[in-house]
Design a protein around this nucleic acid. Structure first.
Lengths: 109, 109
DNA sequence: CAGACATATTCCTGAAGGAGTATATATGAC
DNA sequence: GTCATATATACTCCTTCAGGAATATGTCTG
């Protein structure tokens, strides 16, 4: 996930979302220096977010959909949460009171 | 998104997914030092990922579901992509050939 | 008020990582 | 083979940021 934290890398991913691209094309479109793009692609590649295929002297990078599916899967439990309308704060407060009572008793002994 | 890049912060978010917690409880469960937890919570808070509610001398933190919905929304375009089975590589190669032809003609003039 | 407890903030240090430049490697054309 | 092109790597500089310790702020109890 830290691979997507870097703004330029996020841009690269969004570029590759449309279609696979060679390094030089990414350089042109983002206006970055070539070595930086190569390094970012390296990070993305090691994170499993993109994959390469050499074509002649070019290297075509494209997105690995599966990696983003994993992110999607990670979100699943939250999807369940964000529809629950009841406020769990009450439960929390009850728990805290229980815990506090325990401490007090312990102290009095 | 960079807020979630830090492992401990990610853990905090996953802890808060179950239910809101006070700072001290997060400290206990993750075995981190209290100042670090407070700092991480600050980052998460500024990123809009969590929100606070003071209860006595405690501060109860909980997840802001909306923030994660935004991540979910960001994934939407990719959801469309990762079901397409046809390989876009052919298109790319055609484009490259066109481009190359242009260069060659330009050079000969 | 004092003193205990919960949390936040400050300062310092060290490690990670992005940017820039130069260079290395690989492929294709001639 | 030489040369041009495409990409990767190495090295240095500099900024960001997480960890640690000490301290400050705030709140409750008596």
């Amino acid at each position: 996930m830290s691979a997507l934290a870097e703004p330029n890398r996020l841009q690269i991913v969004e570029l590759l979302r449309r279609k696979p691209l060679a390094v030089g094309e990414i350089v042109e479109r983002l206006g970055l220096h070539q070595p930086q793009v190569s390094k970012h692609l390296r990070v993305l590649s090691e994170a499993g977010l993109v994959e390469v295929r050499p074509v002649g002297q070019l290297r075509i990078y494209r997105i690995r959909a599966q990696a983003l599916k994993e992110l999607d899967t990670w979100l699943d439990p939250y999807r369940r949460t964000w529809d629950e309308r009841f406020d769990q704060l009450d439960d929390v407060l009850r728990d805290l009171k229980e815990k506090d009572k325990g401490k007090r008793n312990g102290r009095r002994k």
